[in-house]
């Protein structure tokens, strides 16, 4: 009996430290609807970080850039480069969409890994990266779908739907299916990667609290950046694909 209670206590202790709270949400009620409070709080923080740093850095641009302005110019050139590679010469109007997609996901992912959210205790659930929640990733993926439909329709009008029977009408079902798989794969890839990354870190910390999780944390940072880049690049690629002319 002693052994039993001992081991159970150890298990409980480990569990309390690790605090795996997957699928736990801090519910707020708006009217008759529920929202995930922790996601909204962290997303507000991310938006505040982005807008604040951008405003401070770009407030008074100098001809010879230094410090923050230099960094933000580099980021903007990077975003323009990604957009231009994927969309082509008419990338201009899509820079805000692609750029915000990249920056929001990137800062969200890194905030989950770098900001000490756990200091703030919630009554239920816990603060983590906003991209940790399926609602966020699906929202972003659906916006991407809307964006590429808008891009195609505004460029070619109804002729856009001609791409469904390209190159042969036999592919019509597959082409229609693609419109569903694109947002699905986008959202689940991001959601799964970020959730898995946080879980791996939490589980490793619960097993070995020192040193060992650090490489995994760095791997997590790397993965987070890559995921943001993949999401933005794919969104740009879809937009470019629906805008390119087929003959």
């Amino acid at each position: 009996m002693n052994v039993l209670s001992c081991s159970i206590n150890t298990l409980k202790g480990l569990y309390d430290i690790s605090g795996v709270e997957v699928g736990q949400h801090f519910y707020w009620k708006i009217g008759s609807f529920q929202v995930h409070g922790q996601v909204l709080i962290t997303s507000w923080a991310v938006i505040a970080i982005l807008l604040g740093s951008a405003t401070i850095a770009v407030r008074n641009p100098q001809t010879v850039p230094t410090g923050g302005q230099n960094f933000f110019e580099y980021v903007l050139e990077f975003i323009r480069d990604v957009s231009k590679t994927q969309i082509g010469e008419e990338y201009g109007p899509w820079v805000p969409f692609i750029g915000t997609m990249f920056l929001f996901i990137f800062v969200s992912n890194w905030s989950g890994a770098l900001l000490p959210w756990k200091i703030i205790q919630l009554p239920h659930g816990e603060l983590a990266a906003p991209t940790n929640d399926i609602n966020t990733t699906v929202a972003l993926a659906l916006l991407t779908s809307v964006a590429y439909f808008y891009a195609g329709l505004s460029k070619k009008g109804l002729a856009y739907f001609g791409k469904y029977i390209q190159p042969t009408p036999i592919l019509l079902p597959i082409n229609i299916l693609e419109d569903f798989t694109k947002p699905l794969s986008l959202s689940f890839r991001l959601f799964g990667n970020i959730l898995a990354d946080e879980l791996v870190v939490v589980v490793l910390v619960s097993l070995v609290p020192l040193v060992v999780p650090i490489p995994v944390m760095f791997l997590g940072l790397f993965t987070s950046g890559i995921q943001a880049l993949i999401f933005a690049t794919l969104a740009a690629a879809y937009i470019g694909e629906s805008m390119e002319g087929h003959h």
Binding site: V22, G23, H25, I30, F33, Q34, V35, H36, V39, L40, S43, W44, I47, T100, F104, P130, D133, I134, N135, T136, V138, A139, L140, L142, L143
Partner: peptide, 15 residues
């Protein structure tokens, strides 16, 4: 884990 609610449209609006 897959709990869709009003968070989704709110995130869209925020984005």
């Amino acid at each position: 884990l897959f709990d869709f609610d009003l968070t989704l449209p709110i995130m869209m609006a925020e984005f």
